[in-house]
């Protein structure tokens, strides 16, 4: 038998194979892993990371990075929670504006879109490196969150709002629906639309794309805006699940999402990668987290293992592309 014949197959499905082996190992050791309830549990846990990572994938495909997602998530979650609970009050003008759940959510998502677009604007207009611009936004948005919440959680948002993070629809958790729809839209965007094609083109060769008449700045601003919007949606899910907007919510989420993107095979230098790869990456991280908890591995070791997996994934990816 010639193993070389199977090599392309292995490379193509390496993350899927890795996931399969991972599941097999965990289920051999723990009988709690392969149950329906645990399956939904994992899916619900990773739905936020999937939302964020989809946006991150688009950004990374253009050879950028968005470090601000965690803070944007917190700010938008807090904004929605605050509007829902307290509305907007202007005592001087004797004016009070109350918000419905949908209204407050819309404002939250719009705020995320705006913050993302601002990132894109700074990056394209002033040629600030994406790393720096979004690092600045990470700090700014976190500061604004603390200002808005005065450092205290905003809790008690009502059962209706809690449906978003904890409810079920057609026997599937609502957050899983949301992340599923986000993934579906993103797959269509990347494979079937002009914008999607431009995203790959810019990441693959920015100068050739510019010469081909593509408006680089516009595409980049849109991509960062999408990333901001998806972070905001993640913020809504987190806030709803906890029935509370925490001022420190989402810290270091950017790292988890970058990990998902990278494990999913997207190149940090842009132009190569897929949404489904990222989804697989997010699932691998989720399953790993879940498995380590089920196996009673100490949380300290969990971090070490996670880091090692990320490193391993990239090393395998690199050595494969070199052999080709």
């Amino acid at each position: 038998m010639d193993l070389k014949l199977y090599k392309p197959f292995f490379i193509k499905f390496q993350s899927l194979i890795a996931l399969f082996i991972l599941c097999l190992l965990i289920s051999l050791i723990s009988d709690k892993f392969l149950t329906v309830s645990n399956g939904w549990n994992v899916m619900r846990q990773i739905s936020v990371n999937i939302c964020i990572s989809v946006g991150m994938t688009l950004v990374v495909l253009t050879a950028g990075i968005d470090l601000s997602v965690g803070s944007v998530l917190a700010l938008c979650g807090a904004l929605t929670a605050g509007l829902l609970k307290n509305g907007l009050a202007f005592p001087q003008a004797d004016l009070f504006i109350g918000f419905t759940i949908l209204g407050a959510m819309l404002v939250g998502v719009l705020a995320g879109t705006f913050l993302g677009a601002f990132n894109g604007w700074a990056i394209t207009k002033f040629k600030v490196p994406a790393f720096i611009a979004t690092l600045a936004m990470l700090t700014i948005a976190r500061g604004l969150t603390l200002l808005y919440t005065q450092g205290f959680p905003i809790s008690g948002l009502g059962d209706d709002f809690a449906y978003l993070g904890t409810g079920w629809f057609l026997s599937i958790p609502v957050p899983v629906w949301i992340s599923g729809i986000v993934v579906l839209l993103a797959v269509i965007l990347t494979t079937k639309t002009r914008l999607g094609r431009y995203i790959y083109a810019i990441g693959g060769n920015e100068s050739a794309s510019r010469l081909s008449g593509i408006n680089i700045s516009r595409v980049k601003i849109i991509v960062y805006a999408i990333s901001g919007a998806l972070a905001a949606i993640g913020g809504l899910i987190v806030t709803s699940r906890l029935d509370s907007a925490q001022p420190n919510a989402g810290s270091s989420y950017e790292l988890d999402s970058i990990a998902a993107v990278v494990i999913g095979g997207t190149s940090l230098s842009g132009g190569k990668g897929t949404i489904l790869g990222t989804v697989l990456g997010a699932i691998i991280i989720g399953v790993l987290n879940n498995g380590l908890v089920l196996l009673n591995v100490s949380p300290f070791w969990q971090q070490v293992v996670k880091g090692a997996v990320i490193l391993l994934a990239v090393i395998i990816d690199k050595s494969n592309s070199k052999n080709d």
């Binding site: 790959y200 083109a201 060769n205 100068s207 050739a208 010469l211 132009g271």
Partner: peptide, 9 residues
Amino acid sequence: KKDGLLLDL
């Protein structure tokens, strides 16, 4: 290679 093609596509 630098300005004309999207080599990975």
